[in-house]
Amino acid sequence: MSEKPPQQKPSESAKPVKQDFASMGRRSRRSRWPAWAQFLPLFNFPDSPNYNFSLILRDWIPEILQKHGLNNPQIQNSILEDLDFLDYELQRLFRERDFAAKRSQNDNRMAQVLFMFLAMIATLIGSLQALALTGNPEWMPYFAFAETLVALLTTYIATTRGRKDHGQSWYSNRARAEFLRREFFRYLMRIDPYSALSPVERRSLLSLRAAEINRGTFPTVEEETK
């Protein structure tokens, strides 16, 4: 059973503290938006991944070890060496795949939301056209223009967004990123298949498995859970 969580320091606020996750993303700038609106895609999605992102924050390692009375320099160096190795062999790939998954998800959602929005506008204009037909027929050319504009925008979006299967790309990259995440911890914790290996064998195996996962060749469930 885990030990009880540590007592809050006096300097910490009495109000519940919103924790920024170490690895699962930061609180969004949209935190004041309605909950459903926070899920809407971004128009200004970043162009490149955050190369400073790490699954484990190295600066916190000494603090964690000290808190539990394990501030042995040898232990700390061993962990930091593993993190250095993992940073190039695995985290580099993880950042790319994670970013690609998020971008594909954003593109996928953007196309869906834009189509939904245009469909709503088209329906609105059509309904207003029906109303105007008897009461204000002189407005018909304007409604017809607006409806045609919506159709043009729909075609434009279908052409620009439809050349790549963003949904498939999202799922594929996310699967690879999550496999890499688990492999990271598997190596760091020295569980199978990294137990009972020499350091050279272990590092070679990690390099190979990370590359295979990055390529889309996943270890089987049996291999992962033995």
Partner: peptide
């Protein structure tokens, strides 16, 4: 099995996993 680890090193890795994997998730 992680035969190369001392008990202290095992504990150190446990606490790191506990924070960055379990708590995070």
């Amino acid at each position: 099995m992680s035969e190369e680890f001392t008990l202290d090193e095992l504990k150190a890795r446990y606490w790191i996993f506990e924070k960055y994997a379990l708590q995070d998730q």
